[in-house]
């Protein structure tokens, strides 16, 4: 499923990296531990997290993730948003908790 269709269906806010909205999404991964994502996420996934610093984008880029989705209305630090623009990887935001948004994303992808 295309990222921009998911953004629409789940009413997500695009915070940065709009260029990345055309990407194809394979699945999702919910974690706040960076080495867990590094070791276990797969390319094309949306990463659901509450981490808002620049290292998140470094991992998203190295792992070819489709996007980063911040929960509970969290906003990225400026350096994180900047890198999202550079990498062309979208940062999305939702007011929902990680549990709630993971459930909704699971439903539309599975």
């Amino acid at each position: 499923m295309r990222l921009k269709d998911i953004v629409e269906q789940l009413h997500l806010t695009v915070v940065a990296g709009k260029e990345g909205l055309e990407k194809e999404v394979s699945d999702g991964y919910t974690s706040d531990l960076l080495s867990d994502v590094m070791g276990n996420a797969e390319s094309g996934m949306i990463w659901i997290t509450l981490q808002t610093h620049k290292n998140v984008m470094a991992i998203a880029s190295l792992k070819d993730l489709a996007a980063v989705l911040l929960v509970k209305g969290l906003q990225p630090e400026p350096a994180m948003a900047e890198q999202a623009e550079e990498e062309g990887i979208a940062i999305l935001s939702t007011e929902l908790s990680a549990f709630e948004i993971s459930g909704k994303l699971y439903q539309i992808l599975h």
Binding site: L33, G39, Q51
Partner: peptide
Amino acid sequence: EMGFGAGMGLPNIKR
């Protein structure tokens, strides 16, 4: 707090 320190890095390398 940044999400590092899970103690998964070296096992990830090994794998």
